Amino acid sequence: MNDVVTTPVIAELRDRIARLEGGRARGAEVLPFGLKAIDRVLPGGGLALGCLHEVAGGGNGAIDGAAAALFAAGIAARTKGKVLWCITRQDLFAPAIAHVGLGSNRVIYVEAGDEKSVLACFEEGLRHGGLGAVVAEIARLSMTSSRRLQLAAEGSGTIGIAVRRWRRQTEAADFGQPTASVTRWCVSALPSSPLPVPGVGRARWQLELIRCRAGESADFEVEACDDKGRLALPSDVVYGSPQKEIGRRRASA
């Protein structure tokens, strides 16, 4: 029996069908976190480029919301090229964004009057094709809008990050509605890493991967992004806390 030959035209048609069905195009690149604990649960070993991803704070407070924004900035910092950041509120703290590796020389801020305008800028930025990442702060994201954003991202290969922010508690319920996003994350602030001397250690986050297309949900305790946008595992998570180690020694004794 003769093998079926797949022509470039057929391969392109298959990829188009996969995109229309909400799937990721074959051979799409990924952006690894550089942590095996996270990368191994993500299809392809990292965040899919040319796709839409969602990030939200684990709670309704400003601290978790800031952590979510910094998590998104850390991802964008590890891409190449300019980053378009679409906002409706003038409360994004640029020095904090720069602290996780996304300097002001790389960011183009777009202030829109309402969420409809933000979504329009978000989609246009993804279709541009010359940006490293596009980030947009939005409260509501419908299935129709997310599909348009996903298709725009797939067409250009640019990663899109929707940072979900709410002005009121009733809007938070929208985060539970289905969208076309490839992954959905919740970020919650934790007590900072302990230091052997008085002071404040590196911030910690609880990352919850609550949705991953073609993957499973998971949660991770990590140290916040450094000045290169990279996460790290806390030493007491990697090696075990000193208290646990003492307990193991006493038990073995």
Rank of each mutant, 00 (worst) to 15 (best):
L13W: 02
E54H: 05
L149K: 13
G155R: 12
Y109T: 07
D114A: 09
E21W: 03
K244R: 11
R19G: 11
A77N: 06
R24Q: 13
G34K: 05
A214D: 11
G59A: 09
V100I: 08
W166R: 09
A189F: 02
R14L: 01
A25F: 05
G61E: 00
L84R: 14
G27I: 07
G34M: 03
V100T: 02
A73S: 14
R19L: 14
L92A: 12
E223R: 04
R89G: 04
E245G: 04
T7A: 00
C51R: 15
R26M: 08
A72V: 11
G27Y: 03
A96P: 13
W85E: 08
A96D: 13
G103V: 09
P198E: 03
I161F: 10
I10K: 13
V118M: 11
G46Q: 08
G50H: 10
G58R: 03
R213T: 12
F175W: 08
C225Y: 05
E111H: 10
V100G: 02
A214Y: 09
A253E: 14
N60C: 10
R24D: 10
G201Q: 02
L49I: 06
A37V: 15
S145T: 12
I210V: 15
E137L: 08
N105T: 04
D91Y: 06
F33T: 15
P191S: 08
R26I: 10
G74M: 11
P43A: 04
T7D: 02
L141P: 01
L209D: 03
P178L: 07
W85I: 12
G81M: 01
G23Q: 14
A69Y: 02
A203Q: 15
E208M: 06
C51A: 15
A133Q: 01
E123K: 10
A68I: 00
G130H: 06
R202Y: 01
E137V: 08
I17R: 13
R248S: 10
I108K: 12
A232L: 05
C212Q: 08
P191D: 07
V134C: 11
I75V: 03
V197W: 01
I246Y: 05
G50P: 06
T88I: 07
L49Y: 04
D114P: 00
C212T: 06
R249G: 09
C51N: 14
A56E: 08
K82C: 06
L52V: 14
A224H: 02
D15R: 14
V41S: 01
G240A: 04
T158G: 09
G22V: 03
S145K: 11
A96N: 15
V163W: 02
R165L: 01
G57W: 00
R78Q: 13
R40G: 11
E12F: 05
C86T: 07
D219H: 06
A18K: 15
H99Q: 12
S241M: 12
L131G: 04
I38C: 09
A68V: 02
L92T: 12
N60M: 10
F122W: 13
A76K: 12
A112D: 05
P191L: 04
L119S: 04
H99I: 05
V5S: 07
A112I: 07
G240W: 05
P198C: 02
L92N: 10
V9S: 12
C121H: 11
C212R: 07
A11H: 13
F175L: 11
A37D: 15
R14D: 02
G58C: 07
L195P: 04
A173G: 03
R184C: 04
R213P: 13
H53S: 01
G176T: 00
P8T: 12
